[in-house]
Computed example of a mutant assay.
Amino acid sequence: MYQPGGSFSEAMDEMGNVESLQFDFDVIRAATADFSDANKLGRGGFGPVYKGKLSNGQEIAVKRLSKNSGQGDLEFKNEVVLVAKLQHRNLVRLLGFCLEGNERLLVYEFVTNRSLDHHIFDPKKSANLDWESRYKIIKGIARGLLYLHEDSRLRIIHRDLKAANVLLDIEMNPKISDFGMARMCVLDQTEGNTNRIVGTYGYMAPEYAMLGQFSIKSDVFSFGVLMLEIVSGQKITSFREGENREYLLSYAWKNWREGTAANLIDLTLRSGPLSEMIRCIHIGLLCVQANVADRLDMATVVLMLNSNSIALPLPTQPASFMQNGFPLTTSMKLDTDCKPVSQYEVSITELDPR
């Protein structure tokens, strides 16, 4: 069994034969009708994504990676295998890869209902997403994140959790995707530093955006933002109250402090269980606290979401990394014991099933 403090090579040795996850290029080419435009689902920063069907009838999503990279084949294979070993019902499953000449393909399970942002931020589609569905999505994301933080072989810090990186299957179960920004750490490590800030404005914890310090609590911050977006049906970066544009976290805090938290709830949800929605706002605020130590961990979040009898502490003012309209900056340190899962941005975000 892989022990805390063990090397990545030891973990890889236990994980088995890399070649068992390698697909033949001709198989993938046939499955995607030679990467036809009709099968093209979308395009990310690192290449197009295609829908395919294997000879056994299994639907897949294939990401055709950019050919310009200095990463070696063995390193690419090993990092893909690590991601492929992350198996949880609330994570998008990487089935394998393909290497032939300059071709580098990533093969994923196909997820039917696109990403959460296509549903939650579309006025017509969000009206069909009732509270029961949203609550199921919140709890599923929480379980997936808990697995990454505590139950996977290596502690995974996602670093780019957002609505666009949560895919929904045919039953609207959430699956966290896009591990291109992720960092994997030895099991007894909970934080690290980086000189390259990657992520999405609004979802990034301030200590990460300003100092390059990331931890499992950085992911907790992003999850708190995502919870508030799901409850409100509005984006963190373009939240509006009437004609006014306001930062979602500051609006949520202002209403919480004034006892009017229900103002944050999506109008289409006003007929749902108000106490449960407000409890989610409360948990969301506890996830976005300015002091890292004051934020919940995902194990506690999962418990709170599954038991209304657990008392919640009072939140304080949420974190913000803006001052006078400008991001704060400071010196940053290089990574040491954490490394990227893949510099290829292992991702199938923004899929558009046909």
Score class of each variant (00 low, 15 high):
D151L: 11
I157Y: 02
S126M: 09
L82R: 07
Q71V: 15
T112C: 07
V62R: 09
V92Q: 03
S69G: 15
R93G: 00
K77Q: 15
E75P: 01
E79K: 15
I156A: 05
V81T: 13
N113S: 09
H118G: 06
L168M: 12
E103M: 04
L99R: 10
P123Y: 13
Q71A: 08
V81N: 13
R89V: 11
L106R: 09
V166P: 01
L91H: 06
F97C: 10
N165T: 12
D130C: 06
K139V: 03
F97A: 04
L99Y: 05
K139S: 14
S66R: 11
R64P: 00
R159Y: 07
I137Y: 08
L161S: 07
D73H: 10
N78V: 13
K63W: 12
G72H: 14
R159W: 07
R89E: 13
F76N: 02
Q71S: 06
I137E: 07
T112M: 06
A163F: 01
C98Y: 01
R155V: 03
D122A: 10
N173W: 00
N128Y: 12
T112G: 00
M172A: 00
K125G: 05
E171I: 00
A84G: 11
I137V: 15
S133E: 03
V111H: 09
D169V: 05
L94W: 07
R89C: 07
F110W: 02
I120F: 08
R155Y: 00
E79H: 14
E171S: 12
L106H: 09
H88F: 11
K63Q: 12
G140M: 06
Q71W: 02
N173R: 10
L129V: 11
L105S: 06
G70T: 12
Q71L: 10
Y108A: 03
Y147T: 07
Q87R: 15
L99E: 05
N78M: 14
E103R: 04
H118L: 10
F97I: 05
K175I: 04
G72P: 00
A142D: 08
L167P: 06
K63N: 07
L129I: 12
G72R: 12
A163R: 01
K139W: 01
V166I: 15
E100Q: 14
L65P: 09
K67M: 11
A164D: 14
L65C: 12
E75A: 13
E100C: 03
L86T: 05
A127T: 13
Y147G: 02
G96A: 04
S133I: 10
S69K: 03
L146T: 09
D160S: 06
R134S: 05
L94V: 07
I156R: 08
Y147M: 09
E171D: 15
G144L: 09
I138P: 02
S66F: 05
Y147H: 11
I138M: 06
Y135D: 11
L148A: 03
G101E: 08
N128R: 14
V80P: 02
L161I: 15
H118I: 00
I138W: 07
L148H: 08
L74W: 04
N90S: 12
